[in-house]
Amino acid sequence: MNSVNKIFEKELLVKSTTDNLAVIRDFIKSAANQSGFSEDSTGKIILAVDEACTNIIKHAYKYSPEGNILIKIKFNDPKFSISITDEGSHFDPNKVPEPDLREYYKQKRIGGLGMFLIKKLMDEVNYSTLSGNKNQVILVKYLSN
């Protein structure tokens, strides 16, 4: 049984490879458990972070394995906040349209679902550009939800 903490911070730095997605999910799972989230909410947070990191690996780093992905978790009950920072190409999240599954099906398009899922799964999602050409997305989930 994990003990529940009211306030803590954790971070993980990994290279931009898809095999690290499992490492990232384990890291998020342990932090969400430590914060006292239900299994269902923990599953949502894990998937949202997986989707955000998958997007970074695919789009920001274009599958180059040398990029850095820095994940910082801050929990201050009830706010669980995950910032994910990369140094890859910038993208404008406002230019990514919400997917229409029927259109996707016709066009055999298989991307773009990730961002849609992230919005559905988290309470707050904020994309920003930091100095030094860094991109950051902050995902927030509140414990009460």
Binding site: E51, T54, Y105, K108, R109, I110
Partner: peptide, 14 residues
């Protein structure tokens, strides 16, 4: 567990 990368496979072949 499944992420959108997995869902995309079914969309690509159906």
């Amino acid at each position: 567990y499944i992420s959108s990368a997995g869902l995309g496979v079914f969309m690509a072949y159906v």
